[in-house]
């Protein structure tokens, strides 16, 4: 029996009258690599934002390792505007800030790389260690947390070395070439010690060779850190190669779900993609 790690229950995200995500229910099991695909504007990143607490879903809930971490029902102005499925029972409202979700063990990367541009590569990773260190502002200022600090530094260095970024340690994050910035962003996410890693278009802007390397990299870190990966990706080669299961979204709705082989044959998926000239 596979252990469920992430479960979203009928998430609906509505901006004013626009429904970006409609009743999305997905499951991710421990140790899997699951892909979320769909044409541009299908609501994939919105789903990520709902899971990580950046947006409050209009309705629905998210549970992580069996514990409900996000849940909401239409409130205020949304009560009237709500276009999603009517829910008989009102869900309890749980709206954590993203940092709490990260702390629980969900880390993410961003579609448009969001590194801390004025910090060095090393500091970028160290920042991720901040939340887990046992310290407060007084002990940190007076350096009474030096043990924690030392451990954070050692761990970060080890992580950088492993990702092949050690030589860039003291460079500004913004000065790295694009591919390495992506890699640094993933490293930074790993530094938060996640159980579940959400990757938002990790291969965007990469050529086939780089994409291939990335595929190997994702599998490698997954095994090494005992991770579960949920990723959004447009490069079908990558998706088909490494994912165990695929969810396909179109216009905010789930249109297909299954193994790569099943999804490739699904007529609705083909229709959804035929409308789009290219896969990116």
């Amino acid at each position: 029996m596979m252990e469920n790690i992430l479960h979203t229950e009928k998430i609906t995200m509505q901006f004013g009258g626009v429904v970006a995500l409609y009743n999305l229910t997905i499951d991710v099991n421990k140790g899997e690599i699951v892909a979320l695909i769909g044409p541009n504007g299908a609501g994939k990143t919105t789903a990520f934002n709902c899971i990580t607490g950046v947006y409050e879903p209009t309705n629905g809930s998210v549970s992580f390792c069996g514990e409900t971490i996000v849940s909401n029902h239409p409130q205020g102005r949304m009560k009237k505007l709500y276009l999603g499925e009517e829910d008989k029972e009102k869900l309890r409202v749980i709206r954590p800030t993203p940092d709490k979700i990260t702390k629980l063990g969900i880390a993410r990367t961003f579609q448009n790389i969001r590194l801390f541009k004025s910090l060095t590569v090393f500091e970028n990773v160290l920042v991720a260690k901040h939340m887990r260190a046992k310290q407060n502002v007084l002990t940190a200022t007076l350096r009474l947390n030096w043990r924690e600090e030392k451990r954070a530094r050692e761990e970060s260095l080890a992580l950088l070395e492993e990702q092949g970024l050690l030589q860039y340690k003291d460079d500004l994050a913004s000065s790295l070439p694009y591919g390495l910035q992506r890699r640094l962003e993933i490293s930074r996410a790993l530094a938060t010690e996640p159980k579940l890693l959400l990757l938002d278009e990790p291969a965007a802007g990469m050529n086939p060779q780089e994409t291939q390397e990335l595929a190997e990299f994702i599998v490698k870190i997954k095994n090494k850190y005992d991770l579960t990966v949920l990723m959004i990706e447009h490069h079908m080669d990558l998706v088909m190669q490494i994912s165990d299961r695929i969810y396909v979204l179109d216009f905010g709705k789930l249109i297909a779900h299954g193994t790569p082989g099943e999804v490739q044959k699904n007529q609705r998926v083909i229709d959804a993609y035929l409308g789009v000239a290219d896969d990116a």
Binding site: D99, T102, F116, S118, L126, H130, M131
Partner: peptide, 24 residues
């Protein structure tokens, strides 16, 4: 200190800082 780095992270990118577990 570690807090100073967190401050700078917030300055550079609030969304990313939050995603790194920093309570804004």
């Amino acid at each position: 200190s570690s807090y100073g780095r967190a401050f700078k992270a917030i300055r550079d990118d609030e969304v990313a800082a939050e995603a790194m577990g920093i309570n804004l």
